[in-house]
Design a protein around this nucleic acid. Structure first.
Lengths: 101, 101
DNA sequence: TTTTCTAATCGTAAAATTACGATGGAAGAT
DNA sequence: ATCTTCCATCGTAATTTTACGATTAGAAAA
């Protein structure tokens, strides 16, 4: 193992901003979020129809967005409705705003 | 090769925003940019002193930031002075602003 | 010319990301 | 109870990222 084992400690804001930015760092995820913004909410299946990607790939992108806290899923069996996580969205917005002064 | 060969076409803004976000998607790079903002400019060596990372690693992060257009280097032999690329910084700022409405 | 200093690049290795098809699980419909 | 639908997860493979030490390149200084 070449990599140093211990994790560098940054300020919380730095870590959080990087986490949000990383989640935004793929065009498909940007497009998904834009779609969610315009539709307010949607189901996984809707996205599978919109994007020329496998269902599993879309699901993986949704998972990353969810892990970053940018979206949240609501059970509407047998579907799952995804929406922007407004609370974290505001945090992300203000972190990016502050970052760009 | 499992991966589909052709690249999905997104709107320019989507691609550009994802490119900027990806460059911001690592805490070290966020910290470098914050440092550049506060100092206005700095040399690679300054960053090597500040961060507990190898010189080559810092250089690699700088390269990514440069490739994304967020910073630019100016030759001050035998050093290189890095600054924020103000023009692209404004573009990034407005893309993130628009994205977060 | 040789030395010195700075920073990029090379070579390498481990880990993470991105994509796919296949499988599995939960819940409503039959 | 069985079928169907929807979506997450698994298994896999290619690529990219992240980190390191070592080497190289460029320019000033000796």
């Amino acid at each position: 193992m070449k990599r140093s084992l211990e994790h560098i400690e940054y300020k919380d804001d730095t870590e959080t901003l990087a986490k949000f930015a990383k989640a935004l760092g793929h065009p498909t995820r940007i497009a998904i979020l834009k779609h969610l913004e315009s539709q307010s909410c949607c189901f996984t299946g809707d996205l599978v129809d919109v994007f020329p990607l496998a269902q599993s790939t879309i699901s993986q992108h949704l998972k990353e967005l969810k892990n970053a806290g940018l979206i949240q899923g609501e059970l509407k069996p047998p579907k799952i409705k995804y929406c922007i996580n407004q609370e974290n969205w505001k945090i992300a917005k203000s972190l990016f705003q502050d970052f760009f002064k």
